[in-house]
Computed example of a mutant assay.
Amino acid sequence: MIWLALPLTLALYFLTRALYRKLPWPIINPVLVPTAVIIGLLLWLDLPLAEYESGTRPITALLEPAVVALALPLYQQARQIQARLKPILICTLASVLISVCTTLGIGHWLGADPALLASLSTKSITTPLAMSVSQSIGGIPAIAAAVVVVVGITGALIGYPLLRLLRVTDPEAQGLAMGACAHAIGTAASAERGISQGAFASLAMVMCGILTAAVAPPLFALYHWLIP
Score class of each variant (00 low, 15 high):
61 A>Q: 14
146 A>G: 06
63 L>N: 14
135 Q>I: 13
53 E>P: 07
38 I>F: 12
107 G>Q: 01
129 L>R: 01
113 D>P: 09
166 L>K: 05
204 A>I: 00
66 A>D: 12
225 W>S: 12
37 V>P: 02
30 P>H: 05
103 T>V: 06
198 G>W: 03
128 P>V: 07
74 L>R: 09
41 L>M: 12
90 I>C: 11
166 L>R: 08
158 I>N: 06
102 T>V: 10
216 A>T: 12
56 T>V: 15
76 Q>D: 12
61 A>M: 12
52 Y>G: 00
88 I>T: 13
144 A>G: 05
105 G>M: 14
31 V>D: 05
135 Q>R: 13
129 L>Y: 04
114 P>W: 02
179 G>I: 11
31 V>N: 03
73 P>I: 00
37 V>N: 09
129 L>M: 12
99 S>E: 04
105 G>W: 13
129 L>G: 01
155 G>F: 02
198 G>N: 02
211 L>V: 13
153 I>W: 01
145 A>E: 03
180 A>V: 02
106 I>R: 09
181 C>R: 01
8 L>R: 07
182 A>R: 05
177 A>Q: 07
81 I>Q: 11
4 L>T: 06
162 L>W: 07
107 G>P: 04
16 T>H: 10
176 L>A: 01
88 I>G: 06
167 R>E: 12
79 R>C: 11
154 T>M: 10
224 H>R: 15
40 G>N: 07
16 T>M: 07
9 T>W: 14
176 L>N: 00
139 G>P: 03
3 W>K: 12
176 L>E: 00
204 A>V: 14
217 P>N: 06
118 A>S: 15
218 P>K: 10
222 L>D: 08
24 P>K: 09
39 I>A: 12
153 I>G: 02
39 I>M: 15
88 I>F: 13
22 K>I: 08
188 A>P: 08
85 L>H: 08
64 E>T: 14
203 L>M: 13
30 P>N: 03
108 H>G: 09
212 T>K: 04
92 T>Q: 07
197 Q>A: 06
